[in-house]
C-alpha cells in the first residue's frame, strides 16, 4: 500500500501528543509500518504545533510535505488554514471550529481571518468542521477535544469502531476511559 499521511495540527498544549499516540497504536495493530513525528520543547508553549502520522507498507520520511497529506486533523480553525497547503488536492480536513487568538491578534498587530471554513471549502478541498469543544464538554471534559476529533476522523477510515475503542483503551488512563469513549462516540456520530 502506498504511504498515507495524517497531520494533526493545533496550538501547543491542546493534546495532540495523545491523539498521535492513539493513532500510531491503532495503525500498528493494523499491521502497517508507522512513523510519527512530534514537536517538543519551546514550540509547545502556545505556538503552532504539528504532528505527522504516516503509515503504509514501508515508510521512509518521518515528515509530511506540501501537497502530501490525506487528512488534516485540526484543533483550531486558523491552524487548519495555516497547514492547508500540506493537504493533497483531494484531501480531507477534519477541524474543530474553536478559535484561539494568536499573540499578533491579541496585540492588535494582525486580524483573525473571517469565514475560514467557507474559504477553505471554496479552495476545493473537503472540510468537515464541528464544535469539538462543545462535544468534549458534553462528554465531561474540555480536554477531550482530541478524542472527539479522532471520533470524527474515524468516519473516513476503513477501520472498525471496535479497534478504535481498543486503541483508546490501550493509551488512555483507566479513570478517563469512559469519558474518552463517550467523546469518541460524540465525534463519530456528530
Amino acid at each position: 500500500m502506498q504511504t498515507k499521511n495524517i497531520m494533526i495540527v493545533g496550538v501547543g498544549g491542546q493534546g495532540s501528543l495523545l491523539a498521535s499516540k492513539l493513532l500510531g497504536h491503532l495503525l500498528l495493530t493494523q499491521g502497517y509500518d508507522v512513523k510519527v513525528s512530534e514537536v517538543h520543547g519551546m514550540s509547545q508553549r502556545g505556538g503552532s504545533v504539528v504532528t505527522y502520522v504516516r503509515y503504509g507498507d514501508r515508510v521512509y520520511s518521518p515528515v509530511i510535505d506540501k501537497g502530501e497529506a490525506d487528512y488534516i486533523v485540526s484543533f483550531e480553525l486558523l491552524e487548519a488554514a495555516r497547514w492547508l497547503p500540506y493537504l493533497k488536492p483531494d484531501g480531507q480536513i477534519v477541524t474543530s471550529t474553536q478559535q484561539i487568538d494568536p499573540m499578533p491578534v491579541i496585540t492588535g498587530a494582525a486580524a483573525y481571518p473571517e469565514n475560514l471554513v467557507e474559504k477553505m471549502k471554496a479552495s476545493g478541498v473537503r472540510v468537515d468542521a464541528l464544535d469539538c469543544l462543545a462535544l468534549a464538554k458534553e462528554a465531561g471534559s474540555s480536554k477531550a477535544v482530541n478524542i472527539v476529533l479522532l471520533g470524527r476522523l474515524s468516519h473516513y477510515f476503513g477501520v472498525d469502531e471496535a479497534q478504535w475503542l481498543s486503541a483508546i483503551e490501550a493509551v488512555v488512563p483507566p479513570k478517563f476511559l469512559e469519558l474518552n469513549k463517550k467523546a469518541f462516540a460524540l465525534g463519530r456520530n456528530a
Binding site: G46, G47, S48, P102, Y112
Partner: peptide, 19 residues
C-alpha cells in the same frame, strides 16, 4: 515535487508564548 493549495489570505503567525 508535490504541491498543495493555499488560501489567498494572510494567516497571522502563532509564535510560542508564555502560558
Amino acid at each position: 515535487v508535490h504541491t498543495g493549495c493555499a488560501l489567498d489570505e494572510a494567516i497571522p503567525n502563532r509564535p510560542p508564548v508564555m502560558c
